[in-house]
């Protein structure tokens, strides 16, 4: 007798297979609502099916990993396959991001939407080329103007969150936590001064 593989055929599994198909053709993360609409299923059932898929597609178990990123769900390559992937594809968005670009990106990510004059004021350097470069990479985009006829404002894109592996903007750590206490900086400066004076 010929042996056959049977797929599990309960409704959640069926929905999970549909979501798998949708995620595999999507060029960007898909929100639960988008998946629910395309699969013609309720959001709650979609989340259950996504949970099932997350169990199947995880690091160490599959070459494909399901991740929650940029406000949606997306499939990506497992980290263990990174070297092979790097030999196959180039990553122009991430490559050669300069310090000026990163600072500008940080300003837009944390304080956006912001205009070029605001970025220049904070960095103390004209921001035109950095902003243009980030727009070209697709990491930031225009987001209205400073009042009628004012300067164009910029905000980060979902691609920014995808590149930096953020589920959403709320995952950015607080600047207060990152920058630490101003007092600490003062103490370090005084310590350096003391060493020099010694």
């Amino acid at each position: 007798m010929q042996r056959q593989l049977y797929l599990v055929d309960n409704p959640v599994d069926r929905l999970a297979r549909t979501l798998e198909a949708l995620l595999v053709i999507a060029p960007r993360p898909l929100a639960v609502e988008e998946l629910a609409q395309a699969a013609a299923a309720g959001a709650e059932r979609v989340e259950t099916a996504l949970g099932l898929l997350a169990g199947r597609y995880r690091e160490g178990r599959s070459g494909i990993v399901l991740e929650r990123v940029a406000g949606g769900y997306a499939l990506r390559a497992a980290r263990e396959a990174a070297e092979a992937c790097a030999r196959l594809v180039e990553r122009p968005v991430q490559r050669g991001l300069s310090q000026a670009g990163l600072e500008t990106l940080a300003i837009v990510a944390y304080l956006g939407p912001v205009s070029r004059p605001e970025i220049a004021r904070i960095r103390g350097v004209a921001a035109d080329s950095a902003v243009a470069g980030l727009c070209e990479r697709g990491l930031i985009q225009e987001s209205g103007r400073d009042g009628e006829g004012g300067a164009i404002r910029y905000r980060t894109t979902p691609l920014f969150e995808q590149v930096f592996g953020l589920a959403g903007p709320e995952e950015l750590p607080s600047l207060d936590d990152l920058a630490g206490d101003g007092e600490e900086l003062r103490e370090r400066l005084e310590a350096v001064a003391a060493r020099r004076g010694a």
């Binding site: 999507a26 060029p27 997306a74 499939l75 990506r76 390559a77 980290r79 396959a81 990174a82 992937c85 790097a86 594809v89 990553r91 968005v93 991430q94 991001l97 310090q99 990163l102 600072e103 990106l105 940080a106 300003i107 990510a109 944390y110 304080l111 004021r121 904070i122 960095r123 103390g124 691609l159 995808q162 590149v163 930096f164 592996g165 950015l172 750590p173 600047l175 207060d176 990152l178 920058a179 630490g180 101003g182 900086l185």
Partner: peptide
């Protein structure tokens, strides 16, 4: 302004580290 810049600089540093940490994540674009 220096304090504001310092905070932004810290944000940029975090982004740089994050980019390095995520350098082995490949996804369809």
């Amino acid at each position: 302004r220096l304090a504001e810049y310092r905070r932004v600089k810290a944000g940029a540093l975090w982004l740089e580290e994050r980019l390095t940490a995520e350098s082995d994540r490949f996804f369809r674009l």
